[in-house]
């Protein structure tokens, strides 16, 4: 069965850019969806499992670190791979969000090769 992807970012443009970069990386997803905030993402994640979530950190309403913590409490997210995609590059923050339940971290600006490198091992 094909994999599913959710992109979480408050910027609609950045969601399109991430989607385009994922396609350029050669990775294929049968189903893709978007969420404009951590709250919207959690609502969608409650309704059914998603294989991979690419999530921004610096968002209004609910930031990405809080979204990861709450997503990890959901039965539907038990096997979901959550990758943070952010301009934040402080080591302490990355360690913290990984400890909170993220499976990987990609810093902006990014390349298709970076998505391939980080996502391929998680999809196999």
């Amino acid at each position: 069965m094909g994999k599913s992807l959710m992109i979480v970012d408050d910027s609609a443009t950045m969601r399109k850019i991430i989607m385009r970069t994922v396609r350029m990386s050669g990775l294929e997803f049968e189903r893709t969806e978007e969420a404009g905030s951590g709250v919207e993402a959690l609502e969608k994640l409650k309704t059914g499992p998603v294989d991979v979530v690419l999530c921004d950190i610096n968002m209004p309403e609910m930031n990405g670190t809080e979204m990861v913590k709450q997503a990890r409490q959901l039965p539907t997210c038990a096997s979901t791979k959550i990758i943070m995609v952010s301009t934040e590059s402080a080591e302490d923050l990355i360690k913290q969000v990984m400890a909170d339940g993220a499976d990987g971290y990609i810093t902006k600006p990014f390349t298709p090769e970076k998505f391939q490198e980080k996502l391929t091992p998680l999809l196999n």
Partner: peptide
């Protein structure tokens, strides 16, 4: 909105790169 969003993201990413 696309244009405005893109300019905001440029500011965001340049700030992130400066911060790093």
């Amino acid at each position: 909105n696309d244009v405005s969003d893109a300019m905001g993201e440029i500011a965001n990413m340049v700030m992130g790169a400066v911060k790093a």
